[in-house]
Amino acid sequence: MKLFYKIIKALLLFIGIMIIVVSLFFGHKDIPLEELKSKYAQAPSQFVDIEGMQVHFRDEGDQMTDMPIVLIHGTGASLHTFDEWAERLKREHRVIRMDLPGFGLTGPFPDRNYSMENYVDFIKEFLESRGVGTCILGGNSLGGAIAWQFTAKNPEMVEKLILIDAAGYPMKSESRPIAFTLARIPVVNKALTFITPLSMVRSSVENVYADKSKVSDQLVERYFKLTLRTGNRQALVDRMAMETDMSKTGLIKNINQATLVLWGDEDLLIPVANAYLFHKDLPNSELVILKNSGHVPMEESPEESLEALFEFLGVTP
């Protein structure tokens, strides 16, 4: 018995030492919001108070248009993932995008409630704060799930719907970002809130790209630094701890808005089979599968994805 306790004590000591060593090499302090703002909240960025959060957003293009395009990013991303789209769309459209609570510069929900219902309610409150009554609503991954659930709940506020590698149906990922995996493992996820190797962030971004050569140092740095925004690492752990409610998928068949289902054919996180499920269940949908593109085609393949979007909107590129 004494030998057993000695082994346990030695094992715990070893684990403690390893945590200290890893922390010294890979631990990173949170980056103050004001420091991040100087780099990632330049004009036309703005902030609005919603539910006690200073929500980071950009509202660009023709403010007089009565049908703005609203874009919602996915898990671990930020409004910057739509930079290329916004740069082109704002020439003829009003384009609104925001950092969801838990990500980017907005920071965590004060109550740490990352349920889909809370995100849907947040989007409505945000749109009302911008005076938006009706819009064309688009979202990628988590943002796509928020978009279609928002549409199902508030159909009068959505003219058209754009689903980009959207979450919603049960799925079996071929591969997933390592940060997503670690955030679901008890004890390990606690360490993730202060140990965040740059290499892990790069690996996670590369995981959702088909063409790894498109993952630049500048892109990785942006994901990395915004991850270090105070509260975001804990928010990722909290978000991954939420139970996924698949019961809502029955609502998809009731969405009558014209919908573009846009998917990268090499998406390893949410398989392309799910694109066909959306297309089958949505009564008024168009399906476009982009060749040689992964989970974030608007970021990885902006020209090809924009071409599909313009055709859906019925406008000349």
Rank of each mutant, 00 (worst) to 15 (best):
I69F: 11
S285K: 04
L127D: 00
N113S: 10
T193G: 11
E311G: 13
E221T: 14
G168V: 05
R222H: 04
E286T: 09
R202T: 09
L313T: 08
F312T: 11
M246E: 13
I123Q: 12
E243I: 11
E35T: 14
L287S: 02
L3I: 11
I17R: 00
Q257G: 04
L127F: 08
D83C: 04
P155A: 05
S293Y: 03
P186C: 13
E156S: 13
E300N: 04
E84L: 05
L13F: 13
Y209H: 12
I185Q: 07
H56F: 09
L236E: 05
H279G: 06
D99H: 11
G16C: 13
S23T: 15
E84W: 02
D267C: 00
V55E: 09
D165G: 13
Q234P: 01
D59A: 04
T134E: 15
L269R: 05
E35Q: 12
I136C: 08
A41N: 06
V208G: 10
I96T: 01
S285R: 02
P283A: 11
K253E: 15
T259I: 06
I185N: 08
G231M: 05
F82T: 02
D62N: 15
S173H: 01
Y169E: 01
E128K: 15
T316F: 11
D165I: 02
G314R: 02
L12H: 10
S204I: 01
A77S: 09
